[in-house]
Design a protein around this nucleic acid. Sequence first.
DNA 1: ATTGTGGCCTGCCCGC
DNA 2: TGCGGGCAGGCCACAA
Length: 261
Amino acid sequence: MPELPEVEAYRRLAERAALGRRIRAVDAADPWFLKGGVGASHVEAALAGCRLVGARRRGKLLLLDTDHGRTLGLRFGMTGRLVVDGLAGVDRLLYTSSRDDPAWDRFSLHLEGGGHLRVSDPRRLGGVFLDPDEEALGPDARAATAGQLARALGRSAAPLKARLLDQAHLAGVGNLMADEVLWRAGLAPTRPAGSLAPPELRRLHRHLRRTVDVLIERGGSHLGDLTPHRLPGGTCPRDGTPLQRGTVGGRTTWWCPSHQR
DNA sequence: ATTGTGGCCTGCCCGC
DNA sequence: TGCGGGCAGGCCACAA
């Protein structure tokens, strides 16, 4: 599903294929997809005629800047894809169809030259924002320093995994990546977030950075070393211990009870 | 503020 | 072969 690695792939696609082009028209085909109380006509008026001049990302939020100063924010939920001129940002998403049904197009920009930038989202869990509040998100998980990670965890009594998933404190980590990072770092997802000793915090920071980079390179949040084993009967690929399954932070969680402490 | 829960969305998969 | 129930999780509203 679209976590940080997928959205980074979308960002690179937008940068490569859409930057510098002018928006001829806007098709907000699904009004429900527009968030923040803006209507289709407002979005069209704000974007039509603008040139795309920047493709940024904060966490799972893709930010497309225009030369008129307005910024388009795209969120992909768990099944959203970015497609530019028929080219998809990623080949495959877990938990969703690999088909590209036109009925799933929720929002699109008609670009000069005849192509389109569009969001295809079967489950409609994503959304479109105009000038989104970027500061409502915590620091990006790829760029966060050790100090920022420590501040994101704070003295919280919430489970470590819940805090990593909280986009207001740290932006970009989703369910699969949280399990992967904690598995690599050898930390139990149920640990109180504020209970990490300094060496554990450094370890978590190191593995967070490394995991994000690896998954971006592999091209998806589901391409971790733990992911293939997150199923009934799965065992830890490091030590062979049967994996534990539970709900942590409201999400299905798999971890190794032996080496994750 | 913090923490937890339920609901939204809908394609897909499994068991009958 | 078709059908219905459960499942997936990012995000938000809401409660305590």
